[in-house]
């Protein structure tokens, strides 16, 4: 087969890296997938059920694991790709531990980091026990129990949108795209687990951009009685009865509002990953004002870097959901193959 002798390194084994590796292997290329963590999977390993249809995340993990299980793929875990450079026709990557790997092309799929909620001090994450992140709520779903820190059940839960996104104060002007629909999905799950619990989402805009997202939002009102309050939460505190108090303006009523809740869930956004940023700096790969990897063209070169033989897949370029990440990874493979065939 034509591609058989050609070797592609995929840096990062999340959804994007696994799909890219699988597609390339299927076409006959030799692939080395290098993943920093102990196992491939990336953030998907942390999710319990997925929007928009609330299917078990395990189904998608299973699909991707199968994709990786191919004789053309070798997987190296617990290893960081530290630098990418050119040497003649080759692309050389430097790995943690001081080793090097040679390839004909590289796909960077280093993903995102969750926004560190400590940075929004006014929300009291790390100070108040019952302030948690969306990722921690997923963990609770996986354990099968949503509870307060003392083990008792919450009777009111508040979701705070846009934590670390659309906020100049933390240098993130971008929208993380997936957190609105994640909040809707999680709100429904809380109501299903705890039918007596009231659920509120505090949002600035409801960004239901994907297929079946708006429908999920509608269902959340029609079937699950989720309440929506339009306003950016300005702060949270704890009162004498040890309940969290949320301060917000109900902008549609035009009046300040305060509300006691038992559990406050911060919808932390996506940021360029630290490992990805380190790789970009070391390799001279350009990043944009939002600090994600800058692609060759925003419309028709969205998988192309400005370094020959280096391509991008997934959320290292911008926030996106799993569906778009998989499509983006397949497109990166197309660009890579085009490059290898033309060389």
């Amino acid at each position: 087969m034509k591609g058989a002798s050609k070797h592609v390194i995929v840096a990062g084994g999340g959804v994007a890296g696994m799909e890219a590796a699988g597609s390339l292997a299927e076409m006959g290329y030799r692939v080395t997938l290098i993943e920093k963590g102990q196992d491939p999977g990336g953030h998907l390993l942390q999710w319990h059920a997925l929007f928009p249809d609330r299917r078990p995340a395990e189904e998608v993990r299973g699909y991707l694991r199968k994709r990786l299980n191919h004789e053309n793929i070798s997987v190296i875990t617990s290893t960081v790709v530290e630098k990418i450079r050119h040497h003649g026709h080759d692309v050389i990557v430097n790995l943690s531990g001081g080793t090097e790997e040679r390839a004909d092309a590289v796909i960077v799929a280093t993903g995102f980091d969750l926004f560190d909620a400590h940075r929004k001090e006014e929300y009291g994450y790390g100070i108040y026990d019952n302030v948690i992140t969306a990722a921690e709520l997923e963990e609770m779903f996986s354990m099968g129990k949503v509870a307060k820190a003392d083990g008792t059940l919450p009777s009111r839960v508040g979701f705070v949108h846009c934590v670390g996104s659309r906020d100049e104060k933390v240098s993130n002007n971008h929208c993380s795209k997936v957190c609105c629909v994640t909040a809707v999905k999680q709100a429904i799950e809380v109501r299903k687990m705890l039918p007596a619990c009231e659920v509120f989402c505090f949002y600035m805009d409801m960004r239901m951009y994907g297929p079946y997202y708006e429908e999920l939002y509608r269902e959340s009102q029609e079937v699950h009685n989720i309440n929506y309050i339009r306003g950016k939460v300005s702060e949270a505190s704890v009162n004498i009865s040890n309940r969290l108090v949320i301060k917000v303006e109900d902008t549609l009523a035009g009046r300040p509002l305060k509300m006691e809740v038992d559990l406050m869930v911060l919808m932390v956004g996506m940021e360029m990953s630290k490992q990805g940023a380190g790789l970009a700096v070391a390799s001279g790969l350009e990043t944009g004002v939002n600090r994600f990897l800058e692609t060759g063209d925003h419309h028709y070169g969205n998988n192309v870097s400005r370094m020959k033989g280096v391509f991008y897949a997934g959320t290292c370029t911008a926030p996106m959901n799993i569906t778009d990440t998989i499509s983006h990874a397949r497109a990166a493979v197309t660009e890579t193959v085009r490059y290898l065939n033309g060389r």
Binding site: R230, G231, V233, E249
Partner: peptide, 13 residues
């Protein structure tokens, strides 16, 4: 962008 952060914080309001 009319988020209401200021008006939630404002002591006067």
């Amino acid at each position: 962008f009319a988020c209401g952060g200021c008006s939630a914080t404002c002591t006067a309001g």
